[in-house]
Write a protein that binds this DNA or RNA. Structure first.
Length: 495
RNA sequence: GGUCGCGUGGCCGAGCGGUUAGGCAGAGGUCUGCAACACCUUGUACGGCGGUUCGAAUCCGUCCGCGACCUCCA
């Protein structure tokens, strides 16, 4: 276990707090996953990349982390009262489970493309109907819910007498009443407009329904997370995350349900990630201001001039703190792409550096920057700041490579630390990776390029600039950049 | 209308009471047959107006502008 103090901005208290797990050395972490009724969109990806960084950093610090991220495959109602999964199923003439499977597969594939680590447990709402029914019963037994026509509603007024409802989102129950007074007539079975369903009676054509003590029906949306987090992490656990659009009503109601069922607050630290915008506006599926991950990778969209690789997009996300809105723009991505390449070029040079070990004149500078990078990570996972330290190290690496700084001013120990910390930050914590290609392809490519550059070198010796430039230009058209340097010619592939 | 948050240099984006953020672009330079790439150096800033303070981008007030949530959303 690394000896470092991690501070996390807790949405519940709105303060940065020292992270101290309930059980030393162990972390229980729950993150609200996707509803699998259509393709993932980029905003989802940013959220899960943000939590991936946190998960990775906790692992790096040496915690044993149980990371639970659910998949919602039932219970999400649309305005017209139809279930999202059912709607998707009817539209494509599929079983609801086929819809869930199809989009779960797509989701997993996209997470893998973004190099997001899989969670330890990925429970599904439909696989935990019994747990949810039991929780409804507990809440009823405790007097915080009532039954009406086969549906069960959470009684927010009764709950608010004993507990604080609205703590997370800063909402006051009287205001909730005032807000929705106009809609009272539509509320039907509810005693109070802020009450919410924890079990819904299904009508005859509803596709997804289960037996329960109250009716044939289905669980309320917020209930699954309460039931599943309790099952896998216990009644109280360390860390609960989600997009900040889930704060209300989802997380507020989740807290109420857990309190209502077991009398204790579910999570110690609540963490919310901010939204991804595009061109200054919220990305959303419903209006046109959206780009799918696939379109972003291929460049097949009016919003970008070219495609950007998944790792460039991930790097772009890292340049912004998870708690701020991030504005996706073509210019921003292009800038990120260049920075990303510069970072990785420096990383490669760093791994090749060797020192004979001198007086360590620049040790302190480098150690200071690396220390600060980790301090930044400890300060609420501040990836943009940590990255800025790394770029300062990049400048130093380049100076060492170019001879502007003497590599022998670096002791062996500091060089090794640079190499291992750089690797840890880039790959283990930030979760970046280089563009992969199969190694046999790689060998062939090397051979081919060696041949071409050999021919070109001959042409240049004979001052046959026509042939020399033709080779260089044709390769450039294939995004292979030829670099003529002091020590000969090298090449790289630009993505 | 209610709740919360944000406005930083050409662009993106940290900082949040005194010290260079960083990336991209721009400018100058090194390298090159010419280029490109790469590398080095480098300028410009904190929405307006008040206030607190020895000192404010950073705290307070106010005005303007923007966004999110309050209804399904990551």
């Amino acid at each position: 276990m690394k000896d470092s103090k991690l501070y996390i901005e807790n949405s519940l208290t709105r303060q940065k707090e020292l992270f101290t797990p309930l059980n030393p050395g162990f972390v229980g972490m729950y993150v609200c996953g996707p509803t699998v009724y259509s393709d993932v969109h980029l905003g989802n990806c940013r959220t899960f990349v943000s939590f991936d960084i946190m998960y990775r950093y906790l692992l790096y610090l040496g915690y044993k982390v149980r990371y639970v991220r659910n998949i919602t495959d039932v219970g999400h109602l649309l305005d017209d009262g139809e279930d999202r999964m059912s709607k998707g199923a009817k539209a494509d003439n599929l079983e609801p489970m086929e819809v869930a499977q199809k989009y779960s597969n797509g989701f997993h594939q996209m997470m893998s493309v973004f190099n997001v680590l899989p969670p330890s447990i990925e429970p599904r709402a439909t696989g935990h109907i019994i747990e949810q029914i039991e929780m409804v019963q507990s809440i009823l037994d405790n007097g915080y819910a009532y039954e009406a026509n086969g549906s069960v509603y959470f009684d927010t007024l009764a709950f608010a007498k004993d507990h604080n409802y609205g703590e997370l989102s800063g909402r006051v129950i009287d205001e909730l009443l005032a807000e929705s007074r106009d809609n009272l007539k539509h509320q039907g079975e509810k005693k109070h407009p802020s009450d919410f369903a924890i079990w819904m009676k299904a009508d005859e054509n509803h596709l997804m329904k289960w037996n329960s003590p109250w009716s044939v029906g289905f669980p309320g949306w917020h209930l699954e997370c309460s039931a599943m987090s309790t099952k896998y992490l216990g009644k109280t656990f360390d860390f609960h995350g989600g997009g900040n659009d889930l704060k209300f009503p989802h997380h507020e109601n989740e807290i109420a349900q857990n309190m209502g069922a077991c009398g204790c607050t579910p999570a110690k630290y609540w963490v919310h990630t901010n939204m991804l915008l595009m061109n200054g506006r919220k990305m959303s599926k419903s209006d046109g201001n959206t780009i799918s991950p696939g379109e972003l990778f291929t460049g097949d969209s009016v919003h970008v001039t070219k495609g950007y690789s998944p790792m460039v997009v991930r790097f772009f996300m890292l340049q912004c703190h998870y708690n701020s809105t991030l504005d996706l723009t073509d210019g921003g991505l292009a800038a990120a792409e260049k920075g990303y390449h510069r970072l990785f070029e420096a990383y490669k040079h760093l791994q090749a550096l060797e020192t004979e070990g001198g007086d360590g004149a620049i040790n302190a500078t480098i150690n200071g920057l690396l220390d600060q990078a980790f301090d930044d990570m400890n300060d609420d996972f501040n990836t943009p700041k940590a990255l800025s330290r790394l770029f300062e190290v990049v400048t130093l690496i380049n100076k060492l490579v170019d001879g502007h700084e003497n590599v022998n001013d670096l002791t062996e120990a500091t060089l090794q630390r640079m190499q291992s910390d750089f690797h840890a930050l880039l790959f283990d914590i930030f979760g970046l990776k280089e563009h992969e290609s199969s190694s046999s392809d790689h060998d062939k490519m090397d051979g081919l390029m060696e041949l071409l550059l050999d021919l070109r070198a001959q042409a240049r010796e004979q001052k046959d600039w026509g042939t020399s430039d033709k080779i260089r230009d044709q390769l450039a058209a294939l995004n292979i950049v030829v670099k003529d340097g002091k020590e000969g010619t090298s090449w790289t592939i630009n993505s």
